[in-house]
Design a protein around this nucleic acid. Structure first.
Lengths: 140, 140
DNA sequence: CTGCGATCTCGTAGTATCCGATATCGTAGA
DNA sequence: TCTACGATATCGGATACTACGAGATCGCAG
């Protein structure tokens, strides 16, 4: 199968869907959706983020993130507060339960990556990052 | 930017969102959504596909595809018909207008890929494909 | 203190996605 | 032949995602 080399973009989307689905299945206990998982994973470093930063990190618009953060806040996983020094920006921070969830997510992500990338050469992984980065920065 | 090497999975999702958005912007004239574009791109080889095959190709469930194909059919881009020899399966084929749209999409995809991958080594692209493929096939 | 740009939220609308149930079809087995 | 079982796709209903435009709040320059 997969006789033709297959467009990088199509392969990319397939991989995204597939990994997202695996992750959602593994993390079903948390009761989180894909977007929420993605947001928490990007918050996992513990640094506070603004809505804009987070939107850029997950690849969506700030408006989209509002509802996601709403739900995360309602569940007590994050808090919203003004950023000291610039009260326009909203600072999104993990709570204790949010940090716990983020750790679980990070471990699942790391485990999945380990399983997938086990037999591959570092050069391949490096090439992957180069391509992904180039694709992310492409403009219309 | 990109100070930390950043998880492959997060980078993957970011790239998917970014490229999808660029594509949707470029192809706004067609009046198609991301899922529809994805489906047409996967049908672009002209071969007939079944709903299951197409679902696997785009990375979603057959139920999800039904509504997408519904819309494509209503717009006259595809036809549904029974597959000769197995009337359970539904054969999805491009119409003339669907083929035209698919060509436009393929060109946009190819152009985007060319722009993004221009300066990169073939080895990097090869590594990208290896990683993406491994990620796609990972299991829970 | 006035205007302008930045940042976020809210309202609204259309899609996407899935689960469970159902209908149709193919195939193996009695 | 006919019956049971697996495969395939659709339908109904529910939830979430995503975006756009409008509005609110705030920082900053003059």
């Amino acid at each position: 199968m997969n006789a033709p080399p297959d467009s990088p973009l199509l392969a990319l989307q397939r991989a995204t869907h597939a990994t997202l689905h695996v992750l959602a299945t593994e993390l079903a206990d948390l009761g989180l959706t894909a977007a929420e998982i993605n947001a928490l994973a990007n918050l996992a470093d513990g640094r506070p983020h603004t809505a804009s930063e987070l939107a850029a990190a997950v690849g969506s618009r700030p408006t989209t993130l509002t509802s996601v953060v709403d739900r995360l806040e309602r569940r007590g996983h994050v808090t919203r507060g003004p950023r000291p020094g610039d009260r326009r920006a909203v600072q999104i921070e993990l709570t204790d339960s949010g940090r716990a969830a983020a750790v679980t997510i990070s471990e699942a992500v790391a485990g999945l990556e380990r399983r997938a990338l086990d037999g591959l050469s570092p050069a391949a992984v490096d090439g992957f990052h180069q391509v992904v980065r180039a694709l992310t920065e492409v403009r219309a």
